[in-house]
Amino acid sequence: MSLSSNGRNPLAGVKYEHLVAGVFGGVASTLILHPLDLLKIRFAVSDGSSAAKPHYTGLTQAMCQIFRHEGIRGLYRGVTPNVWGAGSAWGLYFLFYNTIKSWFQSGNSKVHIGPGLHMVAAAEAGILTLVMTNPIWVVKTRLCLQYSDGAGGKVLQESHRYNGMVDAFVKTYKYEGVRGLYKGFVPGIFGVSHGALQFMAYEEMKAHYNKYRSLPIDAKLTTAEYLVFASLSKLFAAVTTYPYQVLRARMQDQHAHYDNLRHCIRETWRYEGVVGFYRGMSPYLVHVMPNICLVFLIYETVAGSS
């Protein structure tokens, strides 16, 4: 279903409180939980093939090793682009998603559009958001993977040593061009299915729960109910689509080189098997469950009070 098939203006349902609410949720959750996100990325790219990457045996050991070699600052490497990325990504995602969903509902929030259209709205919102934010995620990933010399045992060449977010943007573009800023974009497109599954599950659970209570589908829920539905929908999407995040992180890793996505998949399978596609799953779940609860709770609170 295209955005112009019924002749309505797709911008008619734009409500900027969704943008503001998403930004607040993304920024707050990122500032609190960034160290867990950093651990997820480092575990995801840890394939044992490079001396430039430290070896971690578990979450606690990894946290202690990073703190010992890099200090508290090491646990917050990449936090600036992560805050910018999470804030803009969640803000844009909620804005696009609710605008598209409102268009499908013809402006009536009490209309239940069903799981199919929920997935379409989430997928379209995800693609639009990814196009606008992928360069931020490349920079964030590279800053998270900029180990201290003591942690990695190898000094990086100048083109891969970054002094901060702006320097990382400039050097990535200078040495790799626009293509460098869009590394990981293809697995990111596959990752759109993650958001689509998550939002479909979240919306359907809310709708069916309110129908069970004989209330309109857009009726407000309690804090505990929002948290339960956000957690369950995220868990469902995470377990289903996690491998794309490993592939995306590896293609964005400045310490590795893959010709394309197929090469990355083949090498991961060749050396690590199925396990390789789920590296970093534990810190990911530890990070993402409280993260998504904070994002959705703050979003529903801010959007609902607007």
Rank of each mutant, 00 (worst) to 15 (best):
V27L: 12
G126S: 14
D149N: 09
E204L: 04
S88Q: 08
S233D: 01
L294S: 13
T301D: 05
T301C: 07
L95T: 03
I100R: 01
T60H: 02
V288M: 11
Y226G: 00
L128N: 08
R77K: 13
I127G: 00
A207C: 09
V83I: 12
Q254D: 13
M1W: 10
D37H: 08
G191I: 00
P216G: 14
Q65K: 03
S88Y: 01
W269Y: 14
G71E: 07
H118N: 15
T60F: 00
V79K: 01
L11C: 11
L95A: 06
G177F: 01
H69P: 01
H208S: 14
S231I: 01
S5A: 14
S233L: 01
A303W: 06
K101P: 04
F169K: 00
A89G: 10
V111T: 12
F236T: 11
G116C: 05
K15P: 02
C144M: 15
F190L: 14
T80Q: 07
H160E: 15
F43Y: 11
Y97E: 07
C264G: 11
S233N: 01
G195F: 12
L215C: 13
S148P: 02
V139Y: 07
L31G: 03
K234P: 00
F94A: 03
V83R: 00
P290F: 06
A125F: 09
V155M: 12
R77A: 13
L3N: 02
P187D: 05
W84G: 13
E203P: 04
E203C: 09
I298L: 10
S306F: 15
F190M: 12
V20S: 07
N108C: 07
F96G: 00
L117C: 05
A121K: 09
H55M: 10
S148R: 02
M281S: 15
D47A: 08
Y202D: 04
H255R: 09
G195K: 00
V23A: 10
H112R: 11
F277A: 07
E300C: 07
L156V: 10
V275Y: 10
D259I: 10
N82L: 02
P81E: 07
V83N: 03
F277P: 03
F96N: 02
D259R: 11
